[in-house]
Structure formats: C-alpha cells, structure tokens
Design a protein around this nucleic acid. Structure first.
Lengths: 343, 343
DNA sequence: TCGACGTGTCGAACCGGTTCGACCTTTCGA
DNA sequence: TCGAAAGGTCGAACCGGTTCGACACGTCGA
C-alpha cells in the first residue's frame, strides 16, 4: 500500500513537506504543491485513517446509537438514519452505527477507544441510561428526544406539547366538542417515552381550556391489535366527532377500520395524526397530520454536533435544547362536525 | 487519556509485557497478568482504536453500503440493517454505515483508507458499479443480491427462480388455470434489479409447463398508484383466480382494494406474496407468502465475510454463491378455485 | 558439571500519518 | 550595506499501540 513516504519520494521532497502540500496546513510553493499532488494522484495515494486518527486525535467519524425496537415503526427509524447519514457525509464525517441492545456498553466502547469524534443518540428516554456514559465521555453528544436532565448535551425534539395543543385547538375551532386521543402503548411510556405524556397532557389542558371533552387511551403498537382497539374506541364513544392519533400503527390501521364501519372522513369523523409526510405517502394515509420530521431532527442533531466537534460553537456556547415547531399538514381530513356525524 | 504505557508503569512492567498480558499473544506469568489487568481496570484503560488499527492493520470494522432508495420499502431495509449490525456485533465488529448516493466513491474511500476490514453491499444490481471498486480493494466483500459476474466476492440472495416456480406450482396444484403476477415497477428492473426477471421468467416457464395462463405486469411502487394498478388488473382479467405479488407496495395495498371490490380471499381469489414475515405482521397482511428473509441474508453475508477476514475459509475456499431456499409461509389465502370465483 | 532448552520479560523498531522548531533563501526597509 | 522579516523546506519527534529478537533465569538430561 502506498503511503505518504512514497508520495514524498516520488515528488522529491520530505515527508513533512508532502503532508503540508496535501493538507494545506502550511504554505508550500505552487511548484512543489503541484508535484506532490501529481505524485499522489499517480500513485493512487489515500491517507491511512488509523494513522491520521492517531496523529490528530480525530477520526472524522460520528457514532450513531439507535435501538431497533419491535414497536418502533420502521419508516420513521429509517428517516432518522437517512437524515443523520446524509448530513454527516455532507460535512465530511462517516457514521459508525450501533444498534446494540446494551446501549451504555456500546457507547462507552466507541467513545473510550476514540473511534468517534462525537455521538448522536436516537430514541432518547426520559432517564436514558446512556446519558451518564455520554457525560463522562470526552466527546460531545447530540440527542434526538428529550431527557429529564439536559446538562452537557445538545437536545433536539419535536415540540410535543405544542403538537398536543395544536391538534385539540384545531378541532375545537371547527366546533368539535368530543374528541378521542389514541396514544402509543403504555409500555412505550414506561420505557421512558415521555413524549407520549407531553403531547397528551398538553392536549388534556387545551381541551379543558376550550371546554371540550377529550377521551385519552393507549393503543397497541402492532397491527391486528390496534385495529381491534380502534373499533372498541369508536363503539365506546359514539358521540366523539374527532380522532387524534399519536400512534403510527393506529394511523396505518385506520383506513381499514373506517371503511368497514362505513365512516367517512371528514364527513363523519375528523382525523389528525402525528407522523411524517413520508410515512403518510408510504401508507397512502389521507389524514391531516402534525409533521414529526425525523429526517430534519437527525439533520439538526448532526449539524450541531459537528459544530461542537470543530469548536465553532459561538462563544459562550450554552448547550441548546431546541424544539421543532409542529407543522400541520392539511390533507383535508378535518371539517366542522355535522348534525349527521357519527350517529 | 490513559494509555498502555501508564498501565505498564502502574504494574511495574515493560510496555510490551503489558501488551502481551492484555492480548494474550505471548505467555505471561500468572502474577504479572493479574497485576497488569488490575492496573488496567483501576486506570480505566481502553486501547486506542486508531493506534491498534495502525499497528495491526485491522480495524474490526465492517463497511455496510446501503442505498436508501425511495421505492425501496423501509421495513425490508431495516431488517437488512438489523441482521447485519447484530451479527457483526456478535462477532466483534462494528459497522460503518454508508448510504452515499455515490456508491463507488464511498466504497473506494473507506477501503483505501483502511477504515474497514471488509464490506457488505446491499441492493446489489446486475451490473453494479460498486463491484469493480470492490474487486480492486484489498479487503474482501460479501453481497446481498446477485450480480451478473460473481468472481472475487461471496454472494447471498433469495432463490428467486425457485420462488417464481413455487408460487405458480402451488396454485396450479390447487387447480387454478389463470393467474396474474404483479412485479416491481419497470424502473427497478432498469436499475439492475434482475431478481424481478428471475422470478418472473421462472414463473412464466412453470406456467407454460403446467398449462396455466399467466398474465405478468409491472406495478407501481408507491401507494396511491399501485392501488389503481391493481383495480385495473382485476378489471382486465376477470377470469383470473390467483394473484402473485412480487411487489411489496402491492401487497400493502391489496386488502383495501379487495375490500372495496367485495372480493374475499381465498374464497374468490387466491393470493401469494413475496415478502418477509416481519413485513406481513407490520401491515397485518393475511396472505400466504414466500419468505424473503432479509435479516437472514444480512446475517449470512456478515458471517461469511468475517470468516474471510479472519482467514478461516476452509482450504481451497472458492467464493460462494448461496441462495436461500424460499419457504412458503401459509396464512390461508390460497384454496382451490370455486365455480363462483371472480364472476 | 555443563550445555541445551523452555519460559517469561525487556528494549527497540515499526505502523503512517502530523507537527514543531530549525534552517536557508530571498525580500524589503532603514 | 546590513539586519529583520517572510516564505519555504527539512529532520526529528510524537501519537499509542504491536511485534520481533535478545536475553536472563531455572530445569533437565547426559
């Protein structure tokens, strides 16, 4: 394998000069630079990543800690991955992907061994056990998901409170007086998915403020079950004219459920979900929804992480906790309730 | 950061001895080994990955080259990723994930810089432009997907020929005489997805041999379109009593289409798909299917790759081209055609 | 009693980059 | 005309591991 010594020899200069010519970290005469570049090209020289990492203590790799949970919806996860990998590549970084079920262990391994310059954590739980490890690490970290304690890390998440409020207020404004909110299953909450509560609590508050009845319920995350749950719900609350979904499986199952009950949306029932536009297209979902923007969150996390790695943080540089504003994508599934609604 | 010199000093031995004590590559007295281990533990020593890679020319990292194509179904892709990452971790390797749209460029970069010990290529096309780069690389590679030329690499794929035959013969055996096969869209084929042809050709041949009429058609890969395609198909071939799906979007859309046409499966129409069981569960699909086993293919590729990296290939060690036998998962969506079928 | 051998340890070299200080020209201003 | 400054190049050291050959010591057989 050709190394920088070979290049230097071919160009008739010292190794250090070849290095300076290629990295541009010191001034080099135009003539020498041209000779070195030419030699590197002809010999097909590529710097050895390990050697460079050793010398510079920089690997140009970002660690990505994901968890492929069975009740995590695949399309959303893939969008996170795509946002992260694409952005990293644009900024000159590669991605080391870990889906190890032992999150803290994997994180400790890759940071202590200096394989990565920084880390992005996905699926961050309220009391995530990877956080202590991350804080003890030498590298910076960016999170997607809001933990209880945000010190020492940059945090990005959808504004679930605002999402909950927006959903309720949108339907209240149209004149709805009885709504149902279907959340993720309870075990997601127990695992630390506080965002379920954040959305639900805000929705409950907004409903109270507007004088709207809101039934809340946890739905299943898997397919045959959630369909049954939806049927049971619609049976239990015949007066409800609006349905709010913070549960991707429920959104995917709803068209079938509504058709079999002969319910039309929005004529008989107004529906608002919370999922990504990509998700809506994949499943051909006709419901208006709060955009959850997984790719955008991944992109933001990587951007900030790289800024921190390269010390471009504006002086003072407090750690950020940034919420993405929930955008309502109107797909025409909401309308004012009619007297004929849901008889 | 604590390095092996610190550990050696704390244990009162030479650096080389500390290295031997920790790696076990030479005999060391029990007493010294214990002292070194103790020191390493107390100091919280973790070897520097870059330094180790430089010294051993081994990174313990496997490159994973995926392409997140818009018409690639997310659940299947995620299953590949999971199979690959889990298996790699079990065998002591980390995963460097690239979803770069410039596949050959990314591959060249990570192999030439010696960031990886080997590479897994997903979505391999018939004339994949990453293959020349891979063959020129110093590291071994394993493919998921069958290219025209398999020299120099290990190849794993579903046996699509057998899958096509099995689908047709299964329905022929039940007495069906007119079938429809819905394949992936034509641009998937043009991109090099030869597996579409492999399945279709085998199906056509099997149909001819059994004296069965087989209509073949390319369907869309996105949701509103494929539904329309399916309706058009069923209109065009009122005599068909069996439907074969080599198109995941079609499988996802079919329940809605059948319900709206009041067609029952298998009473009015027998259906066989080709997708993973995981996929079937996610979408709650009630159709029997040929298991496409993405996680298993990912696992096989990594296993063989690691064997090659570690030179455990059985002597002789020809490169392998291994096809996974298609298993038919019976979900009860096929039956003998009745006289009432599809009037 | 001596030499051969095996075991355990050490020092030094090496992997392939980067970076620091020194040195040599050349240029420019005083 | 001289000295300082600027520009360009070089050699050597360093990053943190691994690995090779040498060597000291104890054991065993002849």
């Amino acid at each position: 394998m050709v190394n920088i010594g070979d290049v230097a020899r071919a160009a008739g200069v010292a190794r250090s000069t070849a290095s300076y010519a290629l990295t541009g970290k010191r001034a080099v005469s135009d003539e020498v630079r041209a000779r070195v570049r030419q030699a590197a090209l002809e010999l097909g020289y590529t710097p050895n990543a390990g050697a460079r990492a050793l010398a510079t203590s920089r690997s140009n790799v970002i660690g990505l800690l994901a968890q492929f949970l069975p009740d995590e919806f695949a399309p959303a996860m893939l969008q996170y991955l795509q946002g992260v990998t694409d952005t990293a590549r644009d900024l000159g970084y590669d991605i080391l992907l870990s889906s190890d079920s032992d999150g803290p262990g994997a994180l400790k391994r890759i940071t202590d061994s200096r394989m990565v310059d920084g880390v992005v954590l996905l699926n961050v739980a309220e009391d995530d056990d990877r956080l202590p490890v991350l804080r003890a690490a030498a590298q910076p970290g960016a999170l997607v998901g809001l933990p209880r304690d945000c010190t020492g890390v940059d945090v990005f998440d959808l504004d679930f409170e605002e999402a909950g409020r927006a959903m309720v207020e949108h339907l209240a404004r149209l004149g709805h007086r009885e709504l149902i909110l279907v959340s993720q299953p309870e075990h997601v909450v127990e695992r630390g998915g506080a965002y379920v509560w954040r959305l639900q609590n805000a929705a409950v508050q907004a409903a109270a403020a507007k004088g709207v009845v809101l039934h809340t319920v946890f739905g299943a995350a898997t397919q045959p079950d959630i369909g049954r749950d939806l049927h049971a719900l619609l049976d239990a609350h015949p007066g409800a004219t609006g349905l709010l979904l913070n549960n991707e499986a429920a959104a995917a199952a709803l068209p079938t459920v509504l058709r079999s009950r002969d319910i039309e949306s929005p004529a008989d029932l107004s529906v608002i979900g919370r999922y990504s536009d990509e998700f809506a297209r994949t499943f051909s979902l006709p419901y208006s929804s709060i955009e959850s923007a997984p790719d955008r969150l991944g992109r933001m996390a990587v951007r900030q992480l790289v800024r921190r790695i390269e010390n471009q943080v504006p002086d003072g540089d407090p750690y950020v906790v940034r919420f993405v504003h929930p955008e309502l994508v109107d797909r025409g599934s909401t309308a004012a309730p009619t007297s004929a609604s849901r008889q």
